[in-house]
């Protein structure tokens, strides 16, 4: 399959996000009832910095292999369209979280989402899913048109 630099770059970012945060979130959610402790500040910093380093290595490797990295109006339009989908998803998730917190306070339910551990990991999950939607829809528009 003939892929442009942009498509390769997006695919790499999508793969890195899914692998890195997918692995972390899988671990977090599979141990939910057993480990209701919040991750340490240092652990989160390591996770984020680790991801940035991984992304930088992958993108640098791709940039070396591809001479042309010019961005034009089509790239900007695709990025804008995808960001709109991603923002819409994130907005819905934030509203759902807010309603959950209100319901929890009103009915004293103590839902998993409203514990600090649950809130932290659900917000991270929503953010990762929004990123996946952003990368995925960009790839879709590069293939199918915009």
């Amino acid at each position: 399959m003939d892929m442009s630099y942009k498509e390769k770059s997006l695919l790499a970012s999508l793969g890195a996000t899914l692998l890195f945060f997918g692995w972390y979130l899988y671990g977090a959610f599979s141990s939910l009832p057993l480990n209701p402790e919040l991750p340490g500040f240092i652990e989160v910093i390591i996770l984020v910095v680790g991801f940035i380093i991984l992304e930088a290595i992958i993108q640098s490797f791709l940039a070396i292999k591809n001479k042309s990295q010019l961005e034009d109006e089509r790239d900007k339009l695709i990025e804008k369209t995808s960001s709109r989908y991603s923002y819409g998803f994130l907005a819905v998730c934030i509203w759902v979280s807010m309603v959950q917190i209100l319901l929890d306070a009103r009915f004293d339910n103590h839902l998993m989402l409203t514990t600090p551990y649950g809130m932290f990991h659900f917000l991270l999950l929503f953010f990762v899913l929004a990123e996946v939607i952003r990368f995925g829809t960009q790839l879709y528009h590069y293939r199918k048109g915009v």
Binding site: S4, D72, E73, R74, K144, G145
Partner: peptide, 16 residues
């Protein structure tokens, strides 16, 4: 623009 944009215009996948 990029070559990919010219290809997309030719294939009717993008209106410049």
């Amino acid at each position: 623009v990029t070559r990919q944009t010219i290809i997309a215009i030719e294939k009717d996948k993008y209106s410049p």
